Computed example of a mutant assay.
Amino acid sequence: MARVADLTRHHWQGRWHPEGGYHSYDRCIPIVATTLEELGEHGPAGPAFWRFGRDHRQPLLDAIGNARRDAYLARRRQAAREDQRRREEREAAQREARRPACAGCGQKFTDARWEAIDYTRDWSTRQSHPHLCEGCQDRAVAAQAQAEADERERQEQERLRQEAEEQAAAQKAGGWLSRFRT
């Protein structure tokens, strides 16, 4: 087996990757050998198989696999997931730092409110009080409506007073004493 391994080295020998600490067997053939004695002693699921280039016997699936490479790739995937999680947390923190607060009560806007006041999307849905949260906006709109109603009422009362004054002046001017005043 050692002679066959030596003669076929160019078919099965992998390339060493020092940064990952494993051999890469891409475009290589995993050549595995055993003896009847080893199979009889350990069985087909036991450490009866020798992969060319390794110094010990292994179960068949371990012999044709690449545990060091698999561990390295798992570490890289885990590191990439951690990087992604940290990036998402950083972006979420930056987004929260940009989130506007209500000028009335100081409460941070909800996502729905923030989206509702985003003028860059649609100018036709412009909010009346973009600097206020929904509750404060409702109170401001109600106060504005009440102020407008009060102003209309005051204007109506002023109009009625002026009409009454004009009517009183007209009566005074048209009365029986008005003949003697001139």
Rank of each mutant, 00 (worst) to 15 (best):
I29A: 10
T120K: 07
E37A: 14
R51V: 01
G20Q: 03
A169P: 06
Q162A: 07
A173C: 11
V32R: 03
R77A: 15
T125Y: 14
D122K: 08
G65P: 04
R121L: 05
P130C: 11
S128R: 04
V141Q: 09
E19T: 12
A116E: 11
C136T: 04
C102A: 09
A93V: 08
L36W: 03
R113C: 04
R139G: 03
A147Y: 11
W176V: 12
R9A: 02
Q171D: 05
F49S: 04
P47C: 01
R90S: 07
V141D: 07
R90C: 09
Q162F: 07
Q162L: 03
A93C: 12
E165S: 14
F52H: 05
H129N: 08
G14Q: 00
R99F: 03
D55G: 04
C105N: 01
R98D: 00
Q127V: 02
R126Y: 08
L61D: 04
W123N: 13
E156C: 12
M1W: 09
H56T: 07
R159Q: 01
Y22E: 00
G65L: 01
Q144W: 15
H23D: 06
G174D: 14
Q94C: 08
A5M: 03
A140M: 08
R75W: 01
H129I: 10
H129L: 13
E96W: 05
D6Q: 15
Q137T: 07
R68W: 00
E89T: 15
R69D: 06
Q137N: 09
R69A: 06
L36H: 07
E88I: 14
R181V: 03
H10N: 09
W50S: 00
G175Y: 10
A45I: 12
T110D: 14
G43F: 11
R90D: 12
D111V: 13
H11D: 08
A164H: 10
C102D: 02
D150S: 06
Q107E: 00
R27S: 15
R179V: 09
E153P: 09
A169T: 02
W50V: 03
R68P: 06
R181W: 07
